[in-house]
Simulated scan of single mutants.
Amino acid sequence: MPATSQAQQKAAGAALAAKRGEIKKSELKGASREMYESMSEEQLEEFAETKRKGLPGKKS
């Protein structure tokens, strides 16, 4: 399932970076922390690879 907003795509990217050890989990806030704890690396990859062009800034 692709991301439905640019904010969701960015949060998934941050959570994915933490899962891979590129950033510390303590640096995550809000939605990215929730995504880190509740989603697998494969799910995060799917959200993070979504193209931002044409997506709204925030999900309404």
Score class of each variant (00 low, 15 high):
Met1Lys: 15
Ala3His: 02
Ala3Leu: 01
Thr4Ser: 15
Thr4Trp: 13
Ser5Pro: 04
Gln6Ile: 12
Ala7Val: 06
Gln8Arg: 13
Gln9Cys: 08
Gln9Asn: 05
Gln9Arg: 15
Gln9Ala: 07
Lys10Asn: 08
Ala12Met: 04
Ala12Val: 01
Ala12Trp: 01
Ala12Pro: 00
Gly13His: 01
Leu16Met: 09
Leu16Ser: 03
Ala17Asp: 05
Ala17Lys: 11
Lys19Ala: 07
Arg20Lys: 15
Gly21Lys: 07
Ile23Tyr: 01
Lys24Pro: 01
Lys24Gln: 06
Ala31Asp: 14
Ala31Glu: 13
Ala31Trp: 07
Glu34Trp: 10
Met35Ile: 05
Tyr36Ser: 04
Glu37Arg: 11
Glu37Gly: 14
Glu37Leu: 12
Ser38Asn: 14
Ser38Tyr: 06
Ser38Gln: 12
Met39Val: 06
Ser40Leu: 11
Ser40Glu: 08
Glu42Gln: 15
Gln43Pro: 10
Gln43His: 09
Gln43Lys: 14
Glu45Pro: 10
Glu45His: 10
Glu45Trp: 09
Glu45Ser: 12
Phe47Met: 11
Ala48Thr: 01
Thr50Cys: 00
Lys51Asp: 15
Lys53Ala: 13
Lys53Leu: 11
Lys53Cys: 04
Pro56Gln: 06
Gly57Leu: 14
Gly57Gln: 13
Gly57Ala: 13
Lys59Cys: 11
